[in-house]
Design a binder for these strands. Sequence first.
DNA 1: TATAAAACCTGTAGTAACTACAGAATCAAG
DNA 2: CTTGATTCTGTAGTTACTACAGGTTTTATA
Lengths: 136, 136
Amino acid sequence: MMKEDKTLSIGGLSKLTGCNIETIRYYEKIALLPAPLRTQGGHRLYSNSLQKRLIFICKARGLGFTLEEVRNLLELINGDYSCDEVKHLVLEHLNVVKTKIDELARLQSSLELMASQCAGGDLPDCAAIDSLFEKE
Amino acid sequence: MMKEDKTLSIGGLSKLTGCNIETIRYYEKIALLPAPLRTQGGHRLYSNSLQKRLIFICKARGLGFTLEEVRNLLELINGDYSCDEVKHLVLEHLNVVKTKIDELARLQSSLELMASQCAGGDLPDCAAIDSLFEKE
DNA sequence: TATAAAACCTGTAGTAACTACAGAATCAAG
DNA sequence: CTTGATTCTGTAGTTACTACAGGTTTTATA
């Protein structure tokens, strides 16, 4: 028995992937997801391979890749990619993520410092605020 | 001797704050930075108090506050704010930042796992990629 | 089978926080 | 006084979507 190709409506695909309907149509518009077949009434019907492609897109987005990065990954995969190339993109992205974490961590310390300088209470006077008005 | 009020052109202000010119005009357009006086030719002239206000905006943005949050902070400060109110906003924002750090940290692990599954080499076959095409 | 409700269609506009022009006017230096 | 740098306004583009409006199709129920 062969696995039949269960097509899905856009709503079904949305449920499957967690990606919402307008977003799916948006991905089609920017040619990230190929245009699917239609019913004779014009409703979209997604084949199994399109379903997989959207799953990929959503997961990669969830990992913080930009749409352009996702596009690159998909092109790589559709051509004859090498594991090296993929790994390269992943590691590059990993660096972006690490940098963001560092920035946020610095930011966290600044905010904590700010909160600690803020004595609290009703007084209209706050060292934390004052410091924000000074250059340097 | 009183401190004179050294006005700045928009370019000077841009240099002082590191905020670029179009952004300064943008802040004016959205009424975050009040409209400054003009030369008779129509060029903007920024008073000391506007300079301070922009410094504040830039610093708060640098701390990751959204423009709306910055607007709230400024209103608070211009009204008769209490230290409590400010502290509240700061702590709230601190939570947002912490949450973002957590998310990114999770993302970092996923990417590290992905990279480690990627064997490297020229082979067009990658467990890391394959996993992205599966649901769940 | 008729009809009503749910899902879907296209196209446009809005979101955040800017950036990037084009084409004209003004300012500062020599 | 001229030339080059700066500034002016206004509009459109960016990223990654979301939110309509107003109409058609599909599906479920009576």
